[in-house]
Lab assay of single mutants.
Amino acid sequence: QVLVIRIKIPNSGAVDWTVHSGPQLLFRDVLDVIGQVLPEATTTAFEYEDEDGDRITVRSDEEMKAMLSYYYSTVMEQQVNGQLIEPLQIFPRAC
Rank of each mutant, 00 (worst) to 15 (best):
R93Y: 05
G53H: 05
T43C: 11
R28E: 11
D61L: 00
Y70Q: 07
D50R: 14
S69I: 08
H20F: 08
C95T: 10
Y72G: 07
N11Q: 11
L38T: 08
V58W: 00
R93D: 07
V30Q: 01
V80Q: 14
D16Y: 00
H20S: 13
I9M: 08
V37C: 07
G82M: 07
L38S: 10
N81M: 13
E86S: 08
T57G: 04
R55T: 03
L26I: 11
V30A: 05
F46L: 02
T43A: 11
M67Y: 01
P87I: 04
S69Y: 07
V58D: 03
E47T: 00
I90G: 01
R59N: 10
D32K: 11
D16S: 04
L38N: 14
S69N: 13
K65F: 05
V75W: 09
P39W: 01
C95V: 14
L88C: 05
A14F: 15
I7N: 01
D29C: 01
V75C: 11
F91Q: 00
N11T: 09
D16Q: 07
V58Q: 00
R6T: 02
F27C: 00
E40D: 09
S73V: 05
P39I: 01
L88T: 01
Y48R: 00
R28N: 12
R59Q: 14
S73C: 09
K8S: 07
M76A: 13
A94M: 15
V19Y: 11
K8Y: 06
T57L: 13
D16F: 02
S12Y: 12
L88R: 02
E62T: 09
V80A: 13
L26H: 13
V58N: 04
V2G: 13
M76R: 14
T18R: 07
P92R: 01
D29Q: 09
T43I: 09
T44K: 06
M67V: 01
I85Y: 15
L3F: 15
Y48V: 00
A94S: 10
L3H: 05
E86L: 07
I9F: 08
L26T: 15
A14E: 12
I56R: 09
D54Y: 10
V58C: 01
L3M: 08
A94W: 13
E63R: 04
V75S: 10
E40P: 04
I9N: 08
E51A: 13
F46G: 00
N81H: 15
P87G: 02
L68K: 04
V2D: 15
I85L: 14
L31N: 02
D54T: 14
G35M: 09
E49P: 02
H20Y: 05
V37N: 05
V75I: 11
D50N: 14
T57N: 06
D52H: 13
D61P: 01
F46I: 06
G82V: 06
P92L: 02
I7Y: 02
D29F: 04
V30I: 06
S21D: 14
Q83R: 11
D29S: 03
Q79I: 08
E77V: 10
E62D: 10
P39S: 06
E63Y: 01
L38Q: 10
E63P: 02
T57K: 05
P39K: 06
P92F: 00
I90S: 03
Q36R: 13
G53T: 00
F91N: 03
W17H: 04
S21H: 14
D52G: 12
A41I: 15
D52Q: 13
R6F: 01
G82A: 07
P23T: 08
S73D: 11
L68H: 02
V75K: 13
S21W: 05
I34D: 02
P39M: 02
E47V: 04
L25D: 00
L88Q: 02
Q36I: 07
R28Q: 11
F46V: 00
S12T: 14
I56F: 06
V80P: 11
Y72Q: 12
V15G: 02
P87S: 03
G22I: 04
Y71V: 01
G82Y: 05
L31E: 04
Q24W: 04
I5T: 01
N81P: 12
Q83C: 08
F91P: 04
L84Q: 14
Q36T: 06
T44V: 10
L25T: 15
Q24V: 04
E77D: 13
Q78E: 10
Y72S: 12
D50M: 14
V15M: 08
G22Q: 11
E51D: 10
L84G: 14
S60W: 00
D54S: 14
V58R: 01
W17S: 03
M64R: 00
V19C: 10
L84Y: 11
I56V: 12
Q1F: 15
I85A: 09
D50G: 13
V37G: 01
A94K: 06
A94E: 13
Y72R: 11
P39G: 08
D52L: 12
W17Q: 04
L68E: 02
R28Y: 03
L68Y: 03
A41N: 13
S21C: 06
T44I: 05
Y72K: 12
V4S: 15
I56T: 06
T42V: 12
D50W: 05
L38E: 02
A66N: 13
S60T: 12
T43H: 14
Y71S: 01
G53V: 01
A45Q: 10
P10W: 03
I85G: 07
S60H: 03
R55V: 03
L31Q: 09
A45Y: 07
E77W: 08
C95M: 06
V19T: 11
V2Y: 11
N81G: 10
N81C: 15
N11W: 06
V80K: 13
G22E: 14
E47H: 02
D50I: 10
S73H: 10
V15R: 05
V58L: 00
Y71L: 01
V33Q: 15
Q1W: 07
E77Q: 10
Q83W: 06
M64D: 03
